[in-house]
Nucleic acid binder design. Sequence first.
DNA 1: GACAACACTTGATTTATATCAAGTAATGTT
DNA 2: AACATTACTTGATATAAATCAAGTGTTGTC
Lengths: 210, 210
Amino acid sequence: MKLTTDELVHFNKNRVEVNFRKGETIIKQGTFAGHIVYIRSGLVKVFKEHGEDELILSLEGRGKMIGLQAIYSNNIYPYSVSAYEDVSVCLLDINTLKYIIGNNAKFAEQILNIIIEESIFSHNRMACLSLKQLHGRFADLLLCLSLRIYRRKIFKVPLSKKDMALITNMSQESMSRVIKEFNDDKITEIHGNRISILDFEKVKRLSVVG
Amino acid sequence: MKLTTDELVHFNKNRVEVNFRKGETIIKQGTFAGHIVYIRSGLVKVFKEHGEDELILSLEGRGKMIGLQAIYSNNIYPYSVSAYEDVSVCLLDINTLKYIIGNNAKFAEQILNIIIEESIFSHNRMACLSLKQLHGRFADLLLCLSLRIYRRKIFKVPLSKKDMALITNMSQESMSRVIKEFNDDKITEIHGNRISILDFEKVKRLSVVG
DNA sequence: GACAACACTTGATTTATATCAAGTAATGTT
DNA sequence: AACATTACTTGATATAAATCAAGTGTTGTC
């Protein structure tokens, strides 16, 4: 990023490194937004709280910026974020960020690109949740983990079956049944928190078909 | 917006006014994005095409900018837009826009705000579609039309029941039944394309309850 | 090592909503 | 005006997936 020396100084002065333990809340929906969160390591969930139940908007890992939406909308975080495992983050002061955005067009452009990418992701997730059924939604979760988060076909996740059920917006029992079918059909090999994708093409096909 | 004279000249040189007839496609998902669309008048739907079926992302009317997502992502429109009624738009050259964003931080900031507002709207819509059932989803449509689009409690919509069913992601038959119940319960008075919201508080409550 | 608490599985039942079917009303066309 | 086409309604049936229920397996705690 093309920041001036002045801007860099500003940034470093207003940057804090923090660690969160598994399960901790990193951002609480509805609270005043003091900073933007940059994830250095660990998996988190971004979710909307809606009375009793919650809707998971996305999973985010290493290298992602979270909370940019708070720049607009009265500095209030429009969603919550919590840690699936121990997480290390960097907190960037929101006013510093706002200041630089308002003065450095190239920087603003990059933030814009991040938000736009998120926006498109969000549209796809909406389509996934509304149009697809159980198998398609789970296939999408597998693709997300494999392509976006771990960049592998075999990986360990800090997610319980219950978590995965929440992410794919289905009941725990349905999740259990879907996983069983995927394993029986040799599409995946899922034992405990270890996921191996055996037939990647089939997962892709299931994601498209729904 | 704080644009320099030079930028204004640029803009006016690369601005075209166009009219679309009811039903016409204004933006086609997957095509090369030449411009951003500013709606001068008329109601349009923004939707994702996904094989056979479609998912409506939002309704937009007078004063809205559409297609900003194409700035990022190889200048390809990530969704389609079509006219529910005769629509008048202004087309802004995407390269001009990009150029100004990259050089005028204040302008970039405003575009950023628009996208962020959209992003939050999109999250709410996702929650609506995934968490709520028929009545809650229809209540949300009523609120959207009444608060965001028409700013009235009584208005005429260019939408058929079929359209409304698509927007709320339910079957035409369910839409019919839900409208009947709303009318029977004196919550609304819907005849043809004329909608009167009689009990606004109840609509809000139904939207929250789901 | 016993016990509690929780994660997961699996089958039976229920439920919300889609689909099917068959009709009436509204609209457009020659 | 007659006819076709489409929009809408309404009841009956089908279905995907949730919930319920009753288990087993796993983990943590004193």
